[in-house]
Design a protein around this nucleic acid. Structure first.
Length: 358
RNA sequence: GCAGGGUUAGUGAAGCGGUCAAACACGACAGACUGUAAAUCUGUUGGCUUAUGCCUUCGUAGGUUCGAAUCCUACACCCUGCA
């Protein structure tokens, strides 16, 4: 994978092209999460038509079911999910955090219980690399350790996760190189290292330095949008913005809202992923004109003949699906409503990204 | 016609003398959702409201009782048996 910077805007913003083994993607770009291999409720074509260039899938979920051996046997994620464009797998590190009640973290790796079957499972940096290579995504992420930002989290815990993330990164790199030693450079996936450090600016800078000095293809910023305020997140992104190397893509993990997108992109972020556009859409919440957040099930839309956003060029709006129709489908429980709303929300995010590329 | 059973808030359905403005479910209304254990979760849902407050409700009309959705009587309607 190669990243080419094309232009700059503002103090730290930039546009570019991410050349992956599965095709080129213009940046900045938003990437929807298709945790189990599919963006919920959408066909691959519907996803692509919104302008989305990269789709995420999740190591943790796909490892538990159907298992990487099944997916590998069906031609990897591209064959399995019937998606031709670039794909990226997350490492499973986030689940260590979000499913914390059922996990035990040791230096070796993470022990956890499959919530569906009750089976005891284990993922380590090495196992995460193996799974991700078997899944066959074009970009993969190092197995990291993040912590939330609750009151119960101490600076020691942040530092502990910070140090472990870097030790695990080295193990990921060693294993990644071992597993891909027989693969030509142009055919191997790209590896992203993850920056941690909570809201401690000095830790964050140190983490970025460590990750950028490592043999990684891209920089991922993790551990944000986990409970902190938007201002706190912005401070971290602003602190890191002047320190990035130009030749590697910067991927902000798990962000975010339209407002977050602007903050991130203007501070040099090239790629972002988040469940919010699609999850909210399935829950009847969409973004409309001027950033307004609309709840389509609201009674006030009962007879509203207009699309979500009159000037929007997404399939849903351009074809004139009225808010009254969408409200009715949501109220009736028809999944079509979530599909149409997801298409709009994804297009909404892509329009923000495309606005910076002009 | 006789014998049983039933009628509870938008709907279904608990309650069977006081702790009942009345469980619960659905519906309705509103909110949340940020590397997806999430087509999920939360709140409100008789009226007035600041209220541990007042008013009106449990088929209809009476009655018993300090007190009734709960007991009695009559009536109305519905269901099930026997004719």
């Amino acid at each position: 994978m190669v990243f080419e910077e094309k232009s700059r805007f503002g103090e730290f913003g930039r546009t570019g092209v991410l050349r992956t083994r599965a095709g080129d993607v213009n940046t900045p770009t938003f990437m929807p999460d298709g945790t189990r291999g599919a963006v919920k409720g959408l066909t691959p074509d519907q996803v692509s038509e919104t302008g989305v260039g990269i789709v995420l899938a999740n190591t943790y979920h796909l490892h538990l079911a159907p298992g990487e051996e099944v997916i590998k046997g069906l031609g990897g994620l591209h064959g399995f999910a019937n998606r031709k464009g670039p794909m990226l797998t997350d490492s499973g590190g986030f689940q260590v955090f979000s499913l914390g009640k059922h996990t035990k973290i040791t230096e070796e790796g993470v022990h956890f219980v499959d919530p569906k079957t009750g089976d005891k499972r284990f993922i380590s940096p090495e196992i995460s690399m193996q799974i991700q290579l078997d899944l066959g995504a074009d970009m993969i992420v190092a197995f990291d350790h993040l912590v939330g930002l609750d009151d119960e989290i101490t600076p020691e815990m942040i530092k502990d996760a910070f140090d472990r993330t870097h030790r695990w990164l080295e193990r990921c790199i060693v294993e990644f190189k071992r597993l891909t030693s027989a693969t030509q450079e142009k055919d191997r996936p790209a590896l992203f290292g993850v920056v941690q450090g909570g809201l401690d600016i000095e830790l964050r800078k140190e983490s970025l330095r460590i990750v950028q000095d490592s043999e990684v293809d891209g920089i991922a910023i993790g551990g944000l949008s986990v409970g902190e305020t938007r201002e706190e997140m912005a401070i971290i992104l602003q602190a890191l913005a002047p320190l990035y190397r130009d030749d590697k893509p910067r991927f902000l993990l798990g962000v975010g809202t339209p407002e977050d997108l602007h903050i991130a992109i203007e501070n040099g972020i090239d790629m972002l992923d988040c469940v919010l556009p699609t999850r909210n859409a399935r829950h009847s919440s969409v973004w409309g004109a001027d950033g307004a957040k609309l709840t389509l099930t609201n009674e006030k839309f009962k007879q509203d003949p207009d699309p979500i956003e009159i000037s929007c060029d997404c399939y849903t709006c351009a074809n004139g699906f009225s808010k009254a129709f969408l409200r009715h489908q949501f109220k009736s429980g028809d999944p079509l409503a979530g599909t149409l709303a997801s298409i709009h929300n994804l297009r909404y995010m892509m329009r923000i990204c495309e606005g910076y590329r002009k």
